[in-house]
Each structure stands twice: as structure tokens, then as C-alpha cells.
Amino acid sequence: MSTQAKQQAVQPISGFEPYKEAPGEEYMGKPMRAHFTKVLNQWKKELMEGVDKTVDHMKDEAANFPDPADRASQEEEFALELRARDRERKLIKKIDKTLQLIEDEEYGWCESCGVEIGVKRLEARPTADMCVDCKTLAEIKEKQVGK
């Protein structure tokens, strides 16, 4: 994994400082929810800008190359971009779902066992809906089933 990819994996959204809990602060109180709302909205905005850039790029770069190899290379490039945008589209849906959880004051707790997910995990993956233990078990089960 490249250094840039590792940085994006740790903090997907640019320009945000990790949340610093005040001593004795309530988990998922109003300030914490406001922080994650801001983070998720910024992330969604960045993803939407990427979609716009892809559309513009594909319009600008679309050409009918006479050489089949050039045409195939361009089609492959476009296919990769579209696949990436499709993953981002799914991520935008997950961000919207997470923003709704924040609004409903249900964000930050594991959907499997109900324990706190934790601020550090949510900083790393703001759309996380399971604690580390439940997510690990789910991944093990997924590998065993072969999905």
C-alpha cells in the first residue's frame, strides 16, 4: 500500500483534526455528534466533487481512436473510473445512512452488540457501524462462507 493510500485509510477526509474529548464528556454528546456530522458532510462533498470530475474527464477525453489498441486502452481507463465511482456512490449512500443515525442519536454504538464503537475507530472509519470485535467476527464468518 502506498504512503498516500495509508494516509487516506487512516483519515479519509482532508482538513480535519481528530476529535478531542473533554474530561468527563458524555460519549456521543452534542459536540461529538456535531464533529462527526461535519466530517461526514465534508467527505460526501469531496466524493461528489470526484463524480463531477470524472464526468468532465470522460467528456473531455472521449475520442474515437482509429487504432483498436488505443480505443481499448481508453475504454479500460473509463471502466476503471466508473468502477471507482460506483464504489464511491455506495459509500455516499452509507454516509447518508450514517448522517441519519447521527440525527436519530443512534450513531456510535455497535449494531450487533450495542457497545460503544469508540471515537478512535469512528475517526478512522466514520461510517463504522460495528465495534472492532463484532466486525472481526463478521469478517471471519464471511471468509468461511466465501461471500
Rank of each mutant, 00 (worst) to 15 (best):
S2V: 08
S2E: 11
Q4T: 15
A5P: 08
Q7L: 15
Q7Y: 12
A9I: 08
P12Y: 00
I13G: 00
S14V: 10
S14E: 11
G15S: 07
P18Q: 07
Y19M: 06
A22V: 09
G24T: 02
Y27C: 03
Y27H: 07
M28C: 01
M28A: 00
G29Q: 01
R33W: 02
A34R: 10
F36D: 01
T37H: 04
T37G: 03
T37N: 05
K38G: 05
V39W: 14
Q42L: 06
Q42F: 04
L47Y: 05
L47F: 07
G50R: 09
G50C: 03
K53T: 06
T54I: 08
H57T: 13
K59P: 04
N64A: 12
F65H: 15
P68K: 03
A69W: 09
R71L: 13
A72L: 13
S73Y: 12
E76P: 00
F78E: 02
L80F: 11
L80S: 04
R87G: 03
K90H: 11
I92L: 04
I92M: 09
I95A: 00
I95P: 02
K97L: 15
T98F: 02
L99K: 04
Q100N: 13
L101C: 08
E103Y: 08
D104Y: 08
G108K: 08
G108T: 03
W109G: 02
W109E: 10
E111K: 15
C113V: 10
L122A: 04
R125A: 04
T127P: 03
T127Y: 07
C131W: 14
V132M: 10
D133I: 14
C134H: 10
L137C: 05
L137P: 00
I140F: 11
K143S: 04
V145Q: 02
V145G: 00
K147A: 06
